Simulated assay, not measured.
Amino acid sequence: MLVDQTLLLTQFMTLLAVLDPISHTTLFLTVTGDLDKAGRRKAALIAIPVAFIVLVVFAIVGQFILQAMNISLLSFQIAGGIIMLIFSLMMVLGQGGGHSKNPDVEGETPESLGVYPIAVPIIAGPGSMLAMVILMDNNRLSFFEQMETVAMLGLNLLIMLGLFLAGDLVSRIIGKHGANVLRRVMGILLAALSINLIAEALTKWLGLPPI
């Protein structure tokens, strides 16, 4: 079977827009701001595979699970938006988000930060999960086409991993105070994105005009 290059390009660009590696690199730096170079590298090497597994598994079984539990995609989008909103408020208010001075505190080790919040919900958030469910529609695409989607996801996450691993250079440039300011700015932007996810779902549900 020949590879549909148009489909591959469409999937790659869609995931690139949803995952937004540059913005996620900024978030990665703010969350891991108190880790050293080795800790940041470990967090990146944990976060990317975990995010990949979560997104692929959810793309495969998510549609069945949501249908079995009678949960609509809009409800899932609202729930995910609320979780992201709570995390973004913690970033803005200086609670969590990697600001603790003691990396040994529970929830602040490279391993724990790599899983939460970097892998989930920053990378594997409601937006990327919904995108994967749509791109791997079980009722529309063949198994081969679904594997193409998985390959495009892997390529995007490899790009993100490269940016994460190069983040130490960016961290040295912006400095500690710059990272603190950046954390709060990105928290505000993440809060806006969360509100947008919730508002989009409510707009579709209630049949309101777009915001």
Results as ranks from 00 to 15, higher is better:
L2C: 10
L2F: 15
L2S: 14
D4L: 06
T6S: 08
T6R: 05
L7I: 00
L9S: 08
T10D: 14
T10E: 13
F12P: 00
F12S: 00
M13D: 06
T14Y: 08
T14P: 10
L16I: 05
A17W: 05
V18S: 02
D20H: 03
D20Q: 11
D20F: 07
P21V: 01
P21M: 01
P21D: 12
S23E: 08
H24D: 03
H24I: 09
L27K: 07
F28A: 08
L29Q: 02
T30K: 14
D36F: 11
D36L: 08
R41C: 06
K42W: 07
A47E: 08
I48T: 09
P49D: 06
V50Y: 05
V50T: 05
V50L: 03
V50G: 00
A51Y: 02
A51V: 12
I53L: 15
V54Q: 02
V56D: 00
I60E: 11
I60P: 05
V61I: 14
I65F: 14
L66F: 13
Q67S: 15
M69E: 13
M69H: 04
S72H: 10
S75W: 07
F76R: 00
A79K: 02
A79Q: 02
G80Q: 01
G81C: 15
I82S: 05
M84Q: 09
I86V: 13
I86K: 00
S88H: 06
S88F: 04
L89Q: 12
L89P: 07
M90D: 05
M91S: 12
V92I: 13
V92D: 06
G96R: 07
G98S: 15
H99C: 09
S100E: 13
S100W: 02
K101E: 14
N102L: 11
G107S: 06
G107F: 01
T109W: 13
G114C: 06
V115R: 13
V115I: 12
Y116V: 15
P117N: 01
P117A: 04
V120H: 09
I122H: 07
I122T: 10
I123S: 00
I123P: 01
A124G: 10
A124H: 12
S128K: 09
I134H: 02
N138K: 13
N138S: 12
R140W: 11
S142P: 14
F143P: 03
F143M: 13
E145R: 03
E145M: 01
E145H: 08
Q146G: 14
A151I: 15
L153G: 01
G154H: 00
L155P: 01
L155M: 08
N156A: 14
L158T: 08
L158H: 07
L161G: 04
F164T: 02
L165Q: 10
A166M: 09
G167E: 12
V170P: 04
V170I: 15
S171E: 09
I173Y: 12
I173F: 15
G175C: 08
H177S: 15
G178Q: 04
A179H: 11
V181N: 03
R184H: 02
V185F: 05
V185Y: 07
M186C: 10
M186Q: 05
I188Y: 01
L190H: 01
A192F: 04
L193F: 13
I195L: 15
L197Q: 15
L197C: 04
A199V: 10
E200D: 14
A201I: 05
T203M: 11
K204H: 09
L206G: 09
G207N: 03
P209V: 02
I211R: 04
I211P: 08
